[in-house]
Design a protein around this nucleic acid. Sequence first.
RNA 1: GUCCCCAUCGUCUAGCCUGGUCCAGGACACCGGCCUUUCACGCCGGCAACACCGGUUCAAAUCCGGUUGGGGACGCCA
Length: 485
Amino acid sequence: MALPPVYVNNCRACEVKYMTVVRTRFSPSPTGSLHLGGTRTALFNWLFARHHQGVFILRIEDTDRERSEERYVREIKESMLWLGLDWDEGPYFQSARLPLYREYIQRLLDQGEAYYCDCDPADLETRRQEALARGDKPKYDGRCRELGLKPGPNTAVRFKTPLTGTTNWHDRGKGPIAFDNRELDDLVIQRADGIPTYNFAVVVDDITMGVTHVIRGEDHIPNTPRQILIYQALGAALPEFAHMTVTLAPGGGKLSKRRGAIPILDYRERGYLPQALVNYMVRLGWAHGDQEIFSREELIKYFSLEHMSKSPGVYDEEKLLWLNAHYIKETPLPELAGLLQPFLERLGIAAKDLNYLARVAGTLNTRSKTLVEMADQARFYFQDPRPYEEKGARKFLTPESAVHLEEIKKRLEALAEFSEAALNQLFQDLTTETGLKMVQLAQPVRLALTGKTVSPGLFDIIIILGKEEVLKRLNLALDFIYKKQ
RNA sequence: GUCCCCAUCGUCUAGCCUGGUCCAGGACACCGGCCUUUCACGCCGGCAACACCGGUUCAAAUCCGGUUGGGGACGCCA
């Protein structure tokens, strides 16, 4: 497929000029949820395309009929959209392109660059295990290579890998990489059931979809020489390859479902903001000087393959949490209220008044690392603060403090307007009159209003709760104290 | 085992290509302090790294080789 020869030169920061419009793709297989690792690949492809004002394609690699499921396709799309990774083309489905692959397979067969193989998969597996046990590289021995087999019910198609020479490319992420062709073997490109395998389908897709830059995890490096050989056999021009580092689990090893990886949508459930996740993922294996916080626009503006790191990074939840806390603080209160609402609902709290919720959020946004935390901390604004935190109640809800609580109640009752200044005056007066420290006055009230020893600023709470509710809660606390005796 | 990739604070990283300005900078975490009605936030300060060995050079975190370590891949999975 010929691409329109558009000269894209809108990128002053870039050394490289692209002769065609940049086209990248993200090609997950719908055999499971989208995790952080795969999403990071999507993000880098998306950023690269956006940076060059190119095209970002979503392609679903569903040639594994056994394990591919529709619900995962939906989850992948939802995850990407949540993060703002929108695609310009697709989703394309490999399962819908079978005739195309067959055509290309036939071409290789006709050219003598592929052949039929009727080896029994079980035998192959045995031989593989034996080779591994022997300490050899488990390669297909090519026993069907020159047999001239015809298509049959149990015949797969293998690619005829050159026996000599080297295959090399200049990786945009890693630099020059070379493989001795003798390390490779004749890989199956079409299964006995007629479905092409991954290594073949990607190549055909990337060729026909005009993909110019293949950006993917470094776990694909060993596949690359095989794919390059197929490009060459098909007489197609090579795309640029850029292999990015994988993400490691804190204990070591690749981050995976078994080792700490959770579905992207679970981050949403756990109260993470998409901006935080995007910011976190991009800084794992990429940097722009010392900058830690990036807006979406900055990311698009600064992103480049040149600044990808070469060594794998370890997933660090603490840093993600820090970023999340940062973005929570940055989010305008009315918007934050909207985000918080569903999390309160989950706690059985129907906070319908968004104005009120915004004021609540304003007292919690510097104290919460996630929306889940924030919702939990917001409970007392909507619910009876009792039962009181036991230790705090023992220390602060005492007969001695009851005297002061009564006095505070009386004065608050008489106070016309609840304002920061008025409340401050009220408490100041009391400290001078009683000789008590502010903390001795404040903690009992805090307990009475929130049930806890830790909370947002006391005056903020009093103002938000309002006179009626505050007096009610003070009475409840006093009852509690009196009943205790 | 074989092949491939990689190697700066506990972690993410800047610097490395274009050796000297680096007794290595930023961030998270951690530890102190300030602020303060609690807890946070914020601010200030601290701890902490060029894996090792050789070579090239007047000079190496930066270039080369090796060792060690980590990671990845070896499917009719993707």
